[in-house]
Every structure is written in C-alpha cells, then in structure tokens.
C-alpha cells in the first residue's frame, strides 16, 4: 500500500524535541525556530517567529462565514499572542465552534482575514496541511480512531506527517500518555477507555504534533459530570505551561480560572471581551449580563 510521504521539502524538518523538560507542551519560545513555523510551502525563509517574539499567533479581522442563508459569523475580530489562553463563551449557535474551525481551515471564511503565525490563510500558497500540522484541534466528541490502539492514535500523525521513526514517535507518545496517567492504556483500543480518558488521549494526540496553537471545541460537553474535572485539569495544566489556546467552552468556572481573555459571542459577533474578572464580575454589555444571568440562574456559575 502506498503511503503518503509527500512532505516535499519538509521531510528533513523535525520539530524540536521537548525531551528533558517535563513540559507537555513545547513552551520554549526558542523552540520556535524559523524553520518550523513556516506555513507556506516553498519560499519564504526567515519569516518565522523570532525568539521571544510577541507578534500575534492568530489575528482575525472582520471574519464572515455563512452556511447557506444562515450567517454564522458576522465580523469577528480577535488577536492572540504566544501563551495567550482565550476562552470563547456564548450560547449554542453563537458561532464559537465555527470560528475555531475557520482557524484550521476546516471551514473557509467568506469575508475578512485570518492570519496564522503571520500568514494570511486566504493566501493560495498556504498549504492547509501545514496550517493543521502546527494547529492542534480537539473535538467535543474526541474522534479517536477506533481501529487503532491508543498508542497508534497518538503516533499516527507524528510518523506520517513529521516523518518520525516509529520508535521516536512511540517514545514521545508514551511519555505524554504517562504524564496524563494513561501509560498503561497505550495498547488498549479507544472503546475500552472511559469518555474522560478518551478525551485526554485526544488532547495528547494533538500535543504529540507539538502544535503552536491548540483549538479546543467544547471538549467537556460530551462528558458525564464526574469526568469533566480530569479533562479540565489537563487543559489547565497546559495553560500554566504556556500553551497558546483558543477554547470554546460552556464551563464558566473553568474559563474564569484559566483564561487571559474571555470573549462573549452572540449572533456571530464578539459582543464583549476582556479579562475574566471584568467579564464575569462587571460586564458592561447588556447582552453579556443577560447571558451570564441565565447561566447563573441555571446554577452553573
């Protein structure tokens, strides 16, 4: 069977090993050497992030997206710098998930711009596979590959996309699994794991690619209440280690705890954004107040 090893000029390129540090995420800004963060295939050397660079990881401006007649995003602006943790809150259908999916090109936007690591995603030279290689995505429903063991779920992309040898990829995967306490589940199939464990494996699967930006799409919404904590603890740990994360969530307490910035979305726009203390403590917009009041009345804040 032919395997796609068509990585072009990227074959020799390895993401720096995070071995030695006990960090889950590649937090060292120096690790972001110019060769690893390039998104455009082909030329464009030297336009990556310099060490300690605070230039935006993500910059969205006036983003519009419709599904048929339904306009889901109506001009969203958002800027994220390295190590930022941004939580998107808002009721279902407010466009949180769609915004995330636009950031890794699962959806194409119709208006405005999204820049990732300084590259306009609308640029036709941008390779969507390279965008996704540097951008982890974790889904509400985990979407682990059911036909692969946990270990193979985690090593698939590092081996096939980064070209890692099986042993190196497995070492990396085992290390990550051990750190989240699932080292003994490496040889199990996903359906033998609890849903909380599955979601943690899904997060580790993304981390194994050492992404520069992690997109989390309501990662606890499909979990039984008693399993929510173990997943949120893991995400919180990532936040403390400096992982840059854009998080769509219904967990207000969690957002208040980990977010640097909270954005409240309604009707396809960011109605209000700011530090969590202000958004949850003293929101200025009436729409934000109404939303938080409903959450409060439901006993979820």
């Amino acid at each position: 069977m032919t395997v796609d090893r068509n990585l072009g000029d990227d074959t020799g390129r390895r993401l720096p090993e995070s071995g030695g540090t006990d960090a889950l995420a590649a937090v060292d800004p120096d690790a972001a050497d110019a060769s690893t963060d390039r998104l455009t295939a082909g030329e464009g050397d030297g336009d990556g992030l310099a060490a300690g660079d605070r230039s935006p990881v993500l910059r969205a401006a006036g983003v519009h997206k419709s599904f048929g007649a339904l306009e889901v995003l109506k001009g969203v602006d958002l800027t994220m710098r390295p190590h930022d943790v941004v939580c998107l809150i808002g009721s279902s259908g407010s466009g949180k998930s769609t915004l995330l999916r636009c950031c890794n090109l699962l959806e194409r936007i119709e208006g405005g711009t999204i820049e990732l690591f300084g590259h306009d995603l609308a640029d036709e030279r941008v390779d969507e596979d390279l965008v996704r290689r540097h951008t982890g995505m974790v889904f509400q429903s985990f979407n682990l590959f059911p036909h692969l063991r946990v270990l193979d779920n985690v090593t698939l992309a590092p081996r096939r996309v980064l070209g890692l040898q099986r042993k190196d990829a497995e070492d990396r995967a085992r290390g990550l699994l051990q750190r989240i306490g699932l080292g003994d589940k490496a040889q199990e199939y996903p359906d033998r794991l609890s849903r909380g464990q599955q979601q943690r494996v899904a997060i580790v699967r993304s981390l194994a690619m050492q992404p520069r930006l992690l997109l989390l799409d309501e990662v606890t919404s499909a979990l039984d209440p008693e399993l929510v904590a173990e997943v949120l603890d893991l995400v919180g740990e990532l936040a403390r280690q400096g992982m840059t994360m854009l998080i769509a969530t219904h967990e207000m307490g969690f957002a208040r705890e980990v977010a640097d910035t909270v954005c409240f979305l309604e009707g396809g726009v960011i109605v209000e954004s700011g530090p969590p203390e202000r958004i949850f403590g003293d929101p200025t917009e009436p729409a934000t107040r109404r939303f938080l009041q409903r959450i409060f009345d439901a006993g979820r804040l």
């Binding site: 069977m1 032919t2 395997v3 796609d4 068509n6 890794n104 699962l106 969507e128 596979d129 390279l130 996704r132 290689r133 540097h134 951008t135 982890g136 995505m137 889904f139 429903s141 979407n143 682990l144 590959f145 698939l156 992309a157 096939r160 996309v161 699967r205 993304s206 690619m209």
Partner: peptide, 21 residues
C-alpha cells in the same frame, strides 16, 4: 465525517487520511 476531520486536523494529507483512517 468527524473521523476525516480529526485526521485532517492533525495535518494528515487527504491520501494518508484515506489509507490510514
């Protein structure tokens, strides 16, 4: 479809996604 989206989100090409996932 979610399986395909998960695979593509990891950076797997469409061919690798077809053959491996």
């Amino acid at each position: 479809r979610a399986q395909i989206q998960a695979a593509r989100s990891l950076g797997l090409s469409s061919r690798t996604t077809l053959y491996r996932v």
